[in-house]
Design a protein around this nucleic acid. Structure first.
Length: 430
RNA sequence: GGAGACGUGGCCGAGUGGUUGAAGGCGCUCCCCUGCUAAGGGAGUAGGCGGGGAACCGUCUCGAGGGUUCGAAUCCCUCCGUCUCCGCCA
């Protein structure tokens, strides 16, 4: 959510930033709504002040036994009531009209974010490693013999519908072990505190992180009104909601391994083969809460934490800075990490590290008290995948595949696999 | 699912109709004292919104909304949330 005072004082800058995101200018509308809001608040408060004064005088009149004055003042207070409630209602309506609009406006892009209309204009900022070389045509993950054994799409579809899979045997273990490896690394090497979180959240949490009001269609809502999280960013970031924390206690660095649920309403026909895009998937998420001056550095740090995992897993990747047209609703700047998938011959997103500035913090009222004793200020929030577990599994399968249908697994997983670093063509760990 | 209790400031915790935006404690900030990784004394310290250059003024907020009253944190209603006990259960 945006600071209306910023809009009021910097309308041209505000509209200019929106324009970079291909959004129409809104400052004039916002300022108009704000003016109406402030006018009606002023009128309501004026009426309230009158009432308060009369009411207090009435009390004094009664106390001193001046009953004539008391009756007069009492009538005055009564008369003011209707007028006040009308003005209050008006002020409330005007405030809500402004907030309703503000809640639908995406975050403004960071100055560093490249302009562009879609993912083709994202800016590559880094590349690590080289694509593995094969003396055969590399296959997509679900066609690799050793992996296909453990991918039961038929049962997944029978039980739950399309875009659900059952992992079986060694593949299920490999998937589980990957998440352990990721969380362990974040906890022991990256300074994150592991959290075990609910995946069912109250509706207001979905507003706080920005899924609502515009993107409810991409998530699942339960019959009691609560939501299944599309990412544990929702659970983790909202830990700070409604709080005023000491500056000295920041940054918060949390990570969690959770199920994520996405209805992907708009993704019909996209990535239908394999387990790249599922309604239910696992992700290890990192969330940081910082003071404003530290959030840029924190985003770089967080990106490095995600990249480090891929390097440990010996997976070729590149990091891109999303252009304005590809930026998510709440993000100010996003670095996507794309892993090389030999079977597709493409880089595919495996992590997305975003800074939201104070955008989410305003929505969820997450603040800190400055060490110098000043007034509370909004924190900055950041989130990043570290990493998407299913996609990491895919990457390991496709990058490690061999001509006979077996898969060589990265050495970093050795402690988790009892040193068995090969998936046989029959789908066994050997 | 059944029964009950509760919801106050950064935190804990008083407060059942009238300067109570709110005692007290903790925490924090500043000052004093103290020859020292201790203790003591004093002062200050809620948030939002509106107006103002500022000092400051106004207004709202004691879970939320509504009601009673000249006046409510305090009384009434509704809702939300939390906790406890019982039941069921991983």
């Amino acid at each position: 959510m945006h600071d209306i005072r910023f809009v009021r004082e910097n309308p041209a800058e505000f509209d200019g930033a929106l324009k970079r995101r291909k959004e129409p200018p809104l400052s004039a509308t916002l300022i108009e709504l704000d003016a109406a809001r402030r006018r009606s608040i002023g009128e309501a408060e004026e009426a309230q002040a009158l009432r308060n004064r009369a009411s207090q005088e009435a009390g004094q009149a009664r106390a001193t036994g001046n009953l004539t004055a008391f009756e007069e003042l009492r009538a005055e207070v009564s008369a003011a009531k209707d007028r006040i409630s009308k003005l209050e209602r008006e002020a409330e309506e005007n405030s809500r009209a402004l907030d309703d609009l503000l809640m639908t406006i995406p975050n403004l892009p960071h100055a560093d974010v490249p302009d562009g209309s879609d993912e083709s204009e994202n800016l590559e900022i880094r590349r690590w490693g080289n694509p593995p070389e094969f003396d055969f045509e590399p296959l997509e993950h679900f066609r690799i013999a050793g992996a296909a054994v453990g991918l039961d799409f038929e049962s997944g579809a029978k039980i739950s519908g399309s875009r659900f899979v059952i992992l079986s045997g060694a593949l299920a273990r490999l998937h589980r072990v990957l998440s352990q490896f990721m969380v362990d690394t974040h906890v022991t090497a990256n300074g994150y505190t592991e959290k075990w979180t609910p995946v069912i959240v109250r509706e207001e949490m979905m507003w706080g992180t920005g899924q609502l009001p515009k993107f409810g269609g991409e998530s699942y809502q339960l019959t009691d009104g609560k939501w299944l999280v599309p990412t544990s960013e929702v659970s983790l970031t909202n830990i700070a909601s409604g709080m005023i924390v000491a500056e000295g206690s920041l940054p918060f660095r949390y990570c969690a391994h959770t199920q994520c649920f996405r209805s992907e309403a708009g993704a019909a026909g996209k990535d239908t083969a394999g387990m790249l895009r599922q309604h239910q998937f696992e992700k290890v998420e990192m969330v940081s809460v910082t003071v404003p001056r530290c959030s840029d550095d924190e985003q770089r740090r967080m990106t490095r934490c995600a990249e480090g995992l891929l390097e440990e897993l010996e997976l070729h990747y590149r990091t891109v800075s999303l252009c304005t047209g590809d930026l998510g609703f709440g993000a100010r700047r996003t670095f996507d990490i794309e892993v090389w998938l030999p079977g597709q011959g493409k880089f595919r997103e495996i992590s997305s590290v975003s800074t939201c500035g104070d955008f989410q913090a305003r929505r969820m009222n997450a603040r800190y008290r400055p060490a110098d004793g000043g007034h509370p200020e909004f924190v900055h929030t950041l989130n990043g995948s570290g990493l998407a577990v299913g996609r990491t599994l895919i990457a390991i399968l496709e990058n490690g595949q061999r001509a006979d249908g077996s898969v060589a697994l990265p050495a970093a997983l050795s402690p988790y696999l009892n040193g068995k670093l090969m998936l046989s063509p029959e789908g066994d760990l050997v």
